[in-house]
Design a protein around this nucleic acid. Structure first.
Lengths: 237, 237
DNA sequence: GATCGCTATTGTGTATACAGAAACCGCAAT
DNA sequence: ATTGCGGTTTCTGTATACACAATAGCGATC
């Protein structure tokens, strides 16, 4: 077992380009670098503590991720998020997740989903426990996504899903948390899990379709409210 | 109209990194750089005539495209294509194209598809005209894809589709051309176009599903034959 | 007072130099 | 003969220096 270092987080000193990439990516996802923010090479390189060469590599990866766009001539800037782009992202998300869930239900390996089922059954109780409970609920969702990814066994599809989730993370920051919605979402997830366990691809697909439909409605609704009350100046469009 | 230079191909001298990217990408797609081929920085930089810095940027983009993978320590190599990966790619392709076609049919702007319809009606005649006709048929397919992309109006979805098409281009090189299949494919395309024109998303989606199903069967069949007769040593797995 | 042009500054694009790490080869020892 | 060890070499990762392009600011002219 000589891969033990890979199991742990990060014993190995990361390459400078990797550090720069993770830091910038993290700062964009959590909103520290707001949409539209300008990225100057020298400035960012100094701030992060790497030279321009690895920083450029990091920015190139961010551009490939769609988190950053190059401005003609004058540096780069963080991609901004419009309401339109949220609906567009969900059009892609729906295609990918429906396919992924359908395949997961087809594979007929219910073991990991049986454990998740137990967890999601008790999710409503979790959501009564305040912020810490909500956080543990999100961890549960991550585990569900991981289980689906593992069941799908398709690097192309999983890769595309990961890209979508990256953008979703930014959107979730804009949409206020709605406890009612989370409770409803939990039961929608439970239905999806049950369909996977039952090996019913069609049911799983339709349940996913509905779940994402409700999710988008909820996101758009909270954003509409907030933009009406001026809470989210980030969303002009 | 000061964007006229953008309309033409390439008046502006391209950046070295862009040149390197396009050249390497092209060579990978047309098989000149075979799957598994090693890419050494210095060697490739000299060959293309750029220095290592822009070449590294180009390779980084190729890695993001999934055309190249980094080998631990010793350079990079061109991603290889397995039969499994073809089926996996089609699982993703199906999700994306079905969604794209469905959306295109929903948008209800039949104008560009009416022109394409005429072209596809005469496609069988085209396919009787040998290699030049086959080439023009492929151009037609490109135009159909472009029309769908334009109708969909969704950068996320179109971006994911482009990534898939990149990998498809490599696979097409492996699958021998089958005139019978092309003729069948043309009529499948016609059905899809008609469904879009009719504004029938469900019909369009199902027609696409079937088209891709047949396409995958055809690809896998020709590859099986070839690997049995040893024509395609690239496909070991 | 406004507009045009020049210049200075700033920032990117590229090349190259240097350091560190990993693989290869040869040698020796078991 | 095989395996382990060390030197050597080659390649990557990073920093830095230089050249070119673009922009902004300022001044001059109309």
């Amino acid at each position: 077992m000589y891969t033990e270092t890979a199991m742990l987080g990060l014993d190995v000193p990361l390459r400078a380009s990797e550090r720069a990439y993770r830091q910038l990516r993290g700062e964009i996802l959590n909103g520290l670098l707001a949409p539209g923010a300008a990225l100057l090479e020298v400035e960012q390189a100094e701030r992060i503590g790497v030279s321009r060469t690895p920083l450029r590599e990091a920015v190139a990866r961010l551009i490939a991720d769609g988190l950053v766009v190059g401005r003609r001539g004058r540096g780069f800037e963080v991609t901004d998020i419009s309401v339109d782009s949220i609906s567009e992202l969900y059009e892609l998300r729906q295609a990918l997740e429906v396919q992924a869930i359908r395949l997961a239900a087809t594979r007929r390996e219910p073991a990991p989903f049986l454990k998740l089922r137990d967890a999601f059954v008790t999710a409503p109780e979790l959501l009564d426990q305040g912020d810490i409970g909500v956080h543990r609920y999100y961890v549960l969702i991550d585990e569900l996504e991981d289980a689906v990814d593992a069941a799908v066994e398709n690097p192309f599809l999983v890769g595309a899903l990961r890209a979508v989730r990256t953008h979703l993370a930014r959107i979730r920051r804009l949409a206020r948390r709605n406890p009612m919605r989370l409770r409803a979402a939990a039961s929608e997830h439970l239905l999806i899990i049950d369909a996977i366990i039952a090996g019913d691809p069609s049911l799983a697909a339709h349940a996913t379709h509905i779940h994402l439909h409700q999710s988008l409605l909820s996101v758009l609704a909270t954003i509409d409210e907030d933009s009406a009350t001026g809470v989210n100046p980030a969303l002009v469009d």
